[in-house]
Each structure stands twice: as structure tokens, then as C-alpha cells.
């Protein structure tokens, strides 16, 4: 599935909630379910700092496919991280570099990704794209 298709799937899931509380309860659940990063990767090297909450991100690249793992100290942030990873993992570098991630806007979480929110998510998306660029360069595609 492309990022766009996965994003569409997520948008459909969120369309079930008409109450903001249900939406956030779901995000909290997703946050708790996030498969977390190895302890050894919860280090300054993998830290994306934001003023409000912190995010750790690691990536590995095998057979043309990138997989991400991440963690955050805030649960709602983790929930959103979970969505991002679901959409962006198991993708090729090109797919990750080029997709505009429109689904975030459609599920009404755009505010969490504005640079002013300072919760590390904006930088996380940027970092994911940087990983993709780096892996692409390294594999000489």
C-alpha cells in the first residue's frame, strides 16, 4: 500500500468519531500500543527535541524498504507517532520523500504538526524524510 492509501485507511478510521474526546481516547490507545524503540536507541542521537514533548526516532533500511521505530514521553504525541509510522514504514525512500501526508489534515491533527506546536512531531516528519534521502543516496538509486 502507498502512503496515500494507508492515509486513506486512517482517515476512514477517524471518520467514525464525531466527538473530539473519542478521537483523543483513540489516540491515547494508539499511543499506548506503539511498538517502542529499543532502549539503546532512546539516546540523544535519536532524540528530536521539541519544547513540549520529546520524540525518539530510529530507522533501518533493507531491500529497498525503510522501517521506522519511535517513542515519545507524551502519550498523545505517541499516538500521532504511531499513525505516522503506520503510514511511513515499509515504504521505499522515494515514496517517503514525495508524499505530502495529506491525511493528517483530513483527520484534524494538522495543528499538532505546525512548527509552532513545538512538540517534536514536525521535526519528526522532517527527520523521516531525511532518513529516506540518506538511504536513497547511500544505495545510489
Amino acid at each position: 500500500m502507498t502512503i496515500k492509501e494507508k492515509g486513506q485507511e486512517i482517515v476512514e478510521e477517524f471518520s467514525m468519531f464525531d466527538d473530539w474526546m473519542d478521537k483523543y481516547n483513540y489516540l491515547i490507545e494508539l499511543g499506548r500500543d506503539l511498538e517502542i524503540i529499543e532502549d539503546s536507541h532512546r539516546d540523544p542521537q535519536h532524540l528530536i527535541s521539541g519544547c513540549q514533548s520529546r520524540v525518539w526516532l530510529s530507522a533501518d533500511y533493507k531491500d529497498g524498504i525503510i522501517n521506522f521505530k519511535a517513542d515519545s514521553d507524551a502519550v498523545i504525541t505517541k499516538g500521532i507517532v504511531n499513525l505516522l509510522i503506520r503510514a511511513m514504514s515499509e515504504q521505499s525512500p522515494d515514496e517517503i520523500i514525495n508524499d505530502p501526508l495529506e491525511f493528517l489534515e483530513e483527520i484534524g491533527l494538522k495543528e499538532h504538526l505546525s512548527p509552532t506546536r513545538a512538540n517534536g512531531l514536525t521535526s519528526m516528519v522532517k527527520q523521516m524524510k531525511l532518513y529516506a534521502l540518506a538511504f536513497k543516496a547511500k544505495s545510489g538509486q
Binding site: Y24, C51, A74, A118
Partner: peptide
């Protein structure tokens, strides 16, 4: 043990403006 950012997000949705962070 709720992270201030998480608490602030919910409190904001209740129409109450508080500051969270350092």
C-alpha cells in the same frame, strides 16, 4: 504521571487556556 503536554491538550479542548511546558 501524565505528561504536561498530554494534559494541556485535553484541558485546551475543554476551553481552558493554561500553559504547559518548561
Amino acid at each position: 504521571d501524565i505528561h504536561p503536554f498530554d494534559a494541556g491538550t485535553i484541558i485546551d479542548h475543554m476551553g481552558v487556556a493554561v500553559r504547559t511546558g518548561n
